[in-house]
Simulated assay, not measured.
Amino acid sequence: MAGWIDYWPQVGRPLSERARTAAGSGGGHFYGPEDSRPGAWMCEAIAVEASADRPLRVRAQTSASPFDGEPTIGVLEVDLGLPWTGRDDGEPLRLGDLPVDRCGMVLGDARALDRFTGLDGESTNGLADVTYWGKYEDTVHAQFGGDRIPQHHSGHGPRGWLDLPLAEAEAVAERLRTWTREGPGNGLIVAVDAHTDLHRFRRASWSHPLLAGVVDLGGCPVLGLDWDPGDHSMRHHGERAYGQVYPATLEARVGEAVLRWTIPPYDPELDGRT
């Protein structure tokens, strides 16, 4: 869960150490303090062993979003590059379950993820992006400029500036906020996104139909998976607190081990919030 990676050091051993323990016992689900149960709004992860001499091959099957009908991830499969050593009958091994983090999910080597900078992290390169949107967007654009920044393959997105030095980005944002306070008042939202690893993968996903993007962490590629806010609100909102969790299994495919995460198609009759 991408939004909680910064919290692993606060709840116990580092992510990589917890992952090594879980993977060494055949794979498993770990979370929060080690003497706890999975809880709402807490860090969680699934860990398994994988080949160290090749990139992981990742596939996705899709289902239609109840929000806009666009394809969303229904099944995620990861070829682990190792022979199947599970049950002789080939039946899947249940590892646990995970919610869909509103901030996205990440898949990669746990040692690399120890250095992943999340929501509260600092810019990895001293740069930041500034975006703005809202009621007075057109007026602000006429006075201050700013390019349209598509944040989805549909081409929609706010206006703003990419790749500004952090201090300059803060100054630009403050000019827009000052204009709003001294002028029309509420009606413009301004955001400054430092180039954390979380923001870098979300930005890399903007042009992908499934909002998937890869970033480099110390020479190790890490895959990030984002979710459209509308789709998340209808299918995954409330996450573990509302029982919105999905099974992760270790399975055999042509004699090799595959990690599989399955998100069933949306069924409004099973959604207790509708």
Score class of each variant (00 low, 15 high):
Leu250His: 11
Glu49Tyr: 02
Asp68Lys: 14
Ala194Arg: 14
Gly126Ala: 01
Gly32Met: 05
Thr117Glu: 15
Gly243Arg: 04
Trp261Met: 03
Thr178Gly: 02
Gln244Ile: 01
Ala52Met: 10
Thr139Cys: 08
Asp271Trp: 00
Asp89His: 01
Arg202Leu: 11
Leu166Ile: 05
Cys103Lys: 10
Asp89Asn: 07
Leu211Arg: 14
Phe30Glu: 07
Cys220Trp: 07
His156Cys: 06
Gly160Ala: 01
His29Leu: 11
Arg13Cys: 12
Gly145Gln: 14
Asp197Met: 03
Glu77Thr: 15
Gly146Glu: 04
Met105Tyr: 00
Asp6Trp: 00
Thr62Lys: 10
His232Glu: 00
Gly69Lys: 07
Arg253His: 15
Tyr136Trp: 11
His199Cys: 00
Leu217Trp: 09
Asp147Lys: 09
Gly187Thr: 04
Asp88Ala: 05
Glu269Ile: 06
Asp129Gly: 05
Arg57Gly: 01
Trp4Met: 09
Asp231Gln: 13
Gln151Ser: 09
Phe30Val: 10
Leu82Asp: 02
Ser233Gln: 09
Asp35Ser: 02
Tyr132Val: 05
Thr131Ser: 12
Val258Ile: 14
Pro165His: 05
Thr62Asp: 04
Gly26Val: 08
Ala167Cys: 01
Arg59Thr: 15
Ile189Lys: 06
Leu80Arg: 14
Ala173Gln: 07
Cys220Arg: 06
Arg203Ala: 13
Phe67His: 03
Leu198Phe: 02
Leu119Cys: 13
Ala128Met: 02
Glu170Gly: 01
Trp161Ala: 02
Ala40Pro: 12
Met105Val: 01
Val140Lys: 11
Arg202Pro: 05
Leu56Ser: 03
Val78Ser: 06
Gly121Ser: 04
Pro14Gly: 06
Arg175Met: 08
Arg102His: 10
His199Thr: 00
Ala257Pro: 01
Ala173Thr: 03
Tyr266Phe: 03
Tyr136Cys: 04
Ala248Gln: 04
His29Val: 09
Pro38Phe: 06
Ile73Thr: 06
Gly160Lys: 02
Leu164Arg: 14
Leu15Asn: 08
Pro38Glu: 11
Leu259Ala: 12
Ala194Pro: 04
Gln143Thr: 12
Gln143Asn: 12
Arg203Gly: 08
Pro55Asn: 13
Ser123Ala: 13
His195Met: 02
Asp231His: 15
Tyr242Asp: 08
Arg260Met: 10
Pro221Tyr: 11
Thr249Ala: 04
Arg202Val: 06
Gln61Tyr: 15
Ala257His: 04
Asp147Leu: 03
Thr249Pro: 07
Glu239Met: 10
Gln10Phe: 03
Gly12Trp: 01
Asp228Phe: 12
Gly238Ala: 07
Ala212Ser: 12
Asp68Glu: 12
Gly218Asn: 02
Pro158Leu: 10
Ser16Cys: 05
Leu217His: 07
Thr180Asn: 00
Gly24Ile: 10
Leu211Asn: 10
Arg20Asp: 10
Arg177His: 15
Pro265Met: 11
Arg253Lys: 15
Asp138Ser: 13
Val192Tyr: 04
His208Cys: 08
Gln143Val: 08
Trp261Ser: 03
Gln244Tyr: 00
Gly12Lys: 00
Ala191Ser: 10
Val48Gly: 11
Trp133Phe: 15
Trp84Gly: 09
